[in-house]
């Protein structure tokens, strides 16, 4: 398959899943009427269901998934570590903590834009903590341990913050923030998340060449005129902005940033820069597919989206760890 052909296939898959996401829902619709009303701008119930309920959900699936996929690929490229991912390493949980503080304190009621800004600040803090704490060239084990600590701390702080709210429903919303969901989101949420994700994608995409050069080693990168610390700063910032924007409206959806880069890496010649772009597409496809699945599963109440991605992603993480062990011969199975 030619290089351009692969990109077309990826876009086709994302487009098909977007369409599928709009078709799936609890209310049966007469599609002829719905499409006619949408096109003529007639304010009917079918048009409202499509435009105000299903469209935002599908768009958010694509935007959030792309942000997570891109952020995962960027972190894996920068840290040269196949297990790096915003969810696993606690960046998403820090974003959720920022969003929770802003939302439940009532600040968001005064100004909606505070929500993604607080989430982005939280994600930035998480990224900085990860870089400072684990340091440059950390081993897989160190990085994961630091990530686990940040993740646990941010998750616990989120639950604690929610328990402090006097609102009786707040405490139970820890499920949304730590497991993620796209249920009942509206176009308002798309308007909040999309600009942040685009803003985060700009520095990430600008650092494509830098990441490619870094993959050859720091000396080679320096010889090519790339300053590694500069790449790290911009990639960290881009990751925080994209993840913050996504988590502010969807909660923590884990493992998408882990799986998406691995799914596309063989098709783009293992170059981190190209992986990032392709991983955005794969992340969108994965999130959309998981979000369709939670709506089709016969569970009493809709399953959280993060539960679905964890069901797929956690075994994948285990498989990666196994492969890593086999490659390094660092330990053998016990049983």
């Amino acid at each position: 398959m030619s290089g351009a052909g692969r990109w077309w296939w990826l876009m086709l898959v994302v487009a098909a899943l977007l369409a599928l996401s709009i078709v799936v829902g609890p209310a049966g619709l007469s599609w002829r009427a719905a499409i006619a009303d949408v096109l003529t701008g007639h304010d009917s119930v079918p048009a409202l269901v499509v435009l105000e309920i299903r469209l935002p959900r599908a768009l958010l699936g694509a935007v959030v998934g792309a942000a997570l996929g891109m952020a995962g690929a960027a972190m894996q490229g920068l840290l040269r570590n196949p297990l790096a991912e915003p969810g696993v390493l606690g960046v998403s949980a820090c974003a959720a903590l920022g969003a929770v503080i802003a939302f439940y304190s009532g600040l968001v009621q005064l100004l909606p834009a505070v929500l993604p800004v607080a989430a982005m600040l939280g994600a930035l803090l998480g990224t900085v903590a990860l870089f400072v704490w684990a340091g440059r060239g950390a081993t897989v084990t160190t990085l994961l341990l630091v990530g686990v600590a940040i993740n646990a701390l941010a998750g616990a702080a989120t639950a604690f913050g929610l328990a402090l709210s006097p609102n009786p429903y707040a405490f139970y919303e820890v499920m949304f923030w730590l497991m993620g969901s796209l249920a009942d989101r509206s176009l308002d949420h798309v308007a909040l998340a999309l600009p942040c994700v685009v803003l985060g994608a700009i520095p990430l995409l600008a650092m494509r060449r830098g990441l490619d050069a870094l993959s050859l080693g720091e000396e080679t990168a320096l010889a090519l005129g790339i300053v590694p610390s500069r790449v790290a700063r911009w990639v960290g910032l881009g990751t925080a902005l994209a993840v913050g924007g996504a988590v502010a409206v969807s909660g923590v959806i884990g493992f998408v940033g882990l799986m998406a880069p691995h799914a596309v890496r063989p098709f783009v010649g293992y170059r981190p820069g190209a992986t990032m772009l392709a991983s955005a597409g794969a992340g969108a496809a994965l999130t959309l597919a998981a979000d369709v699945a939670v709506r089709l599963l016969p569970t009493g109440r809709e399953l959280q989206l993060g539960v679905m991605t964890a069901l797929l992603g956690a075994p994948f993480l285990g498989w990666l760890a196994l492969r890593h062990r086999a490659g390094r011969a660092g330990g053998a199975a016990w049983l």
Binding site: A27, G28, I53, Y104, P166, N167, Y169, E173
Partner: peptide, 27 residues
């Protein structure tokens, strides 16, 4: 589900008052 509610098109929608001065996603 919100979709089902819209499709049913009731003549009157009865909502709760806020349960607290602080917000929640539920409300």
């Amino acid at each position: 589900p919100l979709e089902t509610l819209l499709r049913a098109a009731p003549d009157l929608l009865i909502l709760d008052g806020a349960s607290s001065e602080r917000p929640s996603l539920a409300e």
